[in-house]
């Protein structure tokens, strides 16, 4: 299960992040998105566009192709 496959309002915990672009990775880290963080998917867009998720009270948006590289476990 990955971040991109969650439905809207699903809550989950990040299990692993792999194979993501270095810059995206570092930005995610400084935004507090890392292994063990609780996330909640708040919006998806059409045609595989970016999704928005909430993490530690922050709304963050990344592209779907990056979101599917973030493996999560649903809670």
């Amino acid at each position: 299960m990955n971040l991109g496959s969650l439905s809207i309002n699903d809550e989950a915990v990040i299990v692993s992040i792999s194979d993501i672009d270095e810059i995206v990775m570092r930005r995610l880290n400084s935004l507090g998105v890392k292994i063990g963080s609780a996330v909640c998917l708040s919006q998806k867009t059409l045609f595989g566009g970016p999704c928005i998720f909430e993490c530690q009270g922050k709304q963050v948006s990344i592209r779907n192709k990056d979101a599917i590289k973030i493996k999560v476990a649903q809670v």
Binding site: I23, R27, P50, V60, S61
Partner: peptide, 9 residues
């Protein structure tokens, strides 16, 4: 070069 996207709302 590929394009990346990450933004905080």
């Amino acid at each position: 070069e590929k394009s990346i996207f990450i933004v905080e709302l």
